[in-house]
C-alpha cells in the first residue's frame, strides 16, 4: 500500500526537521459578496519531506487554502509561514521555493511541451545548460521525452497532466502544491504520476496534495487534513484517524466526518 512512502514517524530522529515546512494559523478569507467565509480559521502544519493530503468535499475551501498558501490569495486574517518565512512580509522570498500543479492544464496549448517547460524554467531564473538539463530531467521523469516537441493542444489528457506536473517541478521547488493532479486520466498515467510524486518525496520535496480520490490519498499521504466549511475538522495520520472513528478505510472516514449530503 504505502510501503514506498517514508513515514515521518519512522524517520531517523537525527535527520528530523526542526522547523515545519509550512505552518498556517487561523486563516480566514471571505470573498466579496459571499455569505459564508471560504476559510474560517484554518490551521495546518506540514512537515518537511512529507506528502500532506488536504481532503474535503466540493466547496470545503481546499482550493482557497492552496491559493492562500501559494501566495495567489491574501487571507483576511491569520498567518502562513513557509520555511520560516512569513507570507505577508516575505512573499518574494517564498515564491522561488514553491511550485504549483493546478487542477487545470496550466500550459500554453500552442507551445510544445518542451517550450512550455523552458518558458516556466526561465521565469524561475534557469538559463543555458542548467535550463536544458532541468527540462530534460523533467521530461524523462514524467515519461515525456518522446512527446517533448508535440504541441500541448495535440496531446492526450494523460500527457497533458504529466506535462502539467513537469511544469510545476522544473525549478525543483522545496514545497509543491498539487491541486487534483490526476483528474480525468487513465490508470497508466495516474500510476506514473503517483510514482513520480513518491520519487520526488524521496528526493526531499514536500507536497501538499488535494484530491477526491481517497485511495490516492491513502496510498501517498503520511498525514492528511479533512476540511469542511473552511475549517480543518480532522488532522493526522490516516490509520490513527480511521481507528479513532472506527472506519475501515479513508472513504468511510471521509463520509463519516463530512456527511452524505450533496454539496453542489
Amino acid at each position: 500500500m504505502r510501503a514506498a512512502i517514508s513515514d515521518p514517524a519512522n524517520r531517523d530522529p537525527a535527520k528530523a526537521p526542526m522547523q515545519p515546512m509550512l505552518r498556517a494559523r487561523d486563516l480566514t478569507l471571505r470573498y466579496p459578496g459571499a455569505s459564508k467565509p471560504a476559510l474560517a480559521g484554518l490551521s495546518l502544519s506540514v512537515e518537511q519531506g512529507e506528502i500532506f493530503g488536504l481532503l474535503g468535499p466540493n466547496g470545503a475551501g481546499k482550493s482557497t487554502a492552496i491559493g492562500v498558501m501559494c501566495t495567489l490569495l491574501t487571507a483576511d486574517t491569520g498567518e502562513v509561514e513557509i520555511c520560516a518565512l512569513n507570507l505577508r512580509t516575505q512573499k518574494n522570498k517564498v515564491r522561488p521555493l514553491i511550485g504549483l500543479v493546478p487542477q487545470d492544464i496550466a500550459l500554453y496549448p500552442s507551445l510544445s511541451v518542451r517550450e512550455n517547460l523552458s518558458y516556466f524554467g526561465t521565469l524561475y531564473g534557469l538559463k543555458g545548460n542548467d535550463l536544458r538539463q532541468r527540462v530534460d530531467e523533467c521530461l524523462v521523469m514524467t515519461g515525456l521525452e518522446q512527446h517533448a516537441w508535440r504541441r500541448v493542444q495535440t496531446c492526450s489528457g494523460g500527457i497533458k497532466r504529466r506535462a502539467n506536473l513537469a511544469a510545476g517541478i522544473v525549478h525543483r521547488p522545496e514545497l509543491l502544491f498539487l491541486d487534483e493532479p490526476t483528474v480525468g486520466i487513465d490508470a497508466q498515467s495516474r500510476h506514473l504520476i503517483l510514482s513520480n510524486l513518491q520519487e520526488l518525496q524521496r528526493a526531499g520535496m514536500t507536497m501538499i496534495y488535494t484530491t477526491h480520490y481517497m485511495e490516492e490519498a491513502q496510498q501517498l499521504c503520511a498525514r492528511i487534513a479533512i476540511m469542511d466549511q473552511g475549517q480543518v475538522i480532522a488532522q493526522g495520520e490516516p490509520e490513527i484517524l480511521m481507528a479513532a472513528q472506527g472506519c475501515s478505510d479513508l472513504q468511510e472516514l471521509f463520509l463519516h466526518l463530512t456527511g452524505r449530503s450533496l454539496r453542489d
Binding site: Q103, D104, A106, L123
Partner: peptide, 18 residues
C-alpha cells in the same frame, strides 16, 4: 481561463514584467 495565470502569479517575477 486556462489556469496559466495561476502558475504565472506564483512566480518570483513581478506581474508587470510579464
Amino acid at each position: 481561463q486556462e489556469g496559466t495565470l495561476r502558475r504565472l502569479l506564483i512566480l518570483p517575477v513581478p506581474y508587470r514584467v510579464l
